[in-house]
């Protein structure tokens, strides 16, 4: 089972990277961009029986290593959750 964890800086913290990229995008002359956030994407290939087991495992991994509790928020994305989710290298 292939799942993804999206990790973003918490909104109440200064996210200097996203600010800088947004600034650069606007400098290129693009209009109509209200916000931009740069985050981290972690893809996991899990050998588990069902979604519940996957959720429990991901929660454990997130807590012990993958996400910083002070500075980051995360969400678990299931394949097919989002239209247009492209997976280069994966069928």
């Amino acid at each position: 089972m292939l799942v993804r964890i999206e990790v973003f800086s918490r909104p109440d913290l200064l996210d200097a990277q996203s600010k800088a990229v947004l600034h650069a995008v606007r400098l290129l002359g693009h209009q109509g961009i209200q916000g931009l956030r740069v985050g981290r994407l972690i893809e996991l290939e899990l050998a588990v029986a069902d979604r519940a087991e996957a959720e429990a495992l991901v929660a454990e991994l997130v807590q012990t290593l993958l996400v910083h509790p002070v500075t980051e928020d995360w969400r678990l994305v299931w394949p097919g959750d989002e239209a247009g989710w492209s997976t280069p290298g994966h069928p």
Partner: peptide, 17 residues
């Protein structure tokens, strides 16, 4: 030490990157 939870808080990218 912050990552290990032995000190509070976190160190993130400098304000000016």
């Amino acid at each position: 030490l912050t990552e290990a939870g032995l000190l509070p808080g976190a160190l993130v990218r400098n304000r000016d990157r």
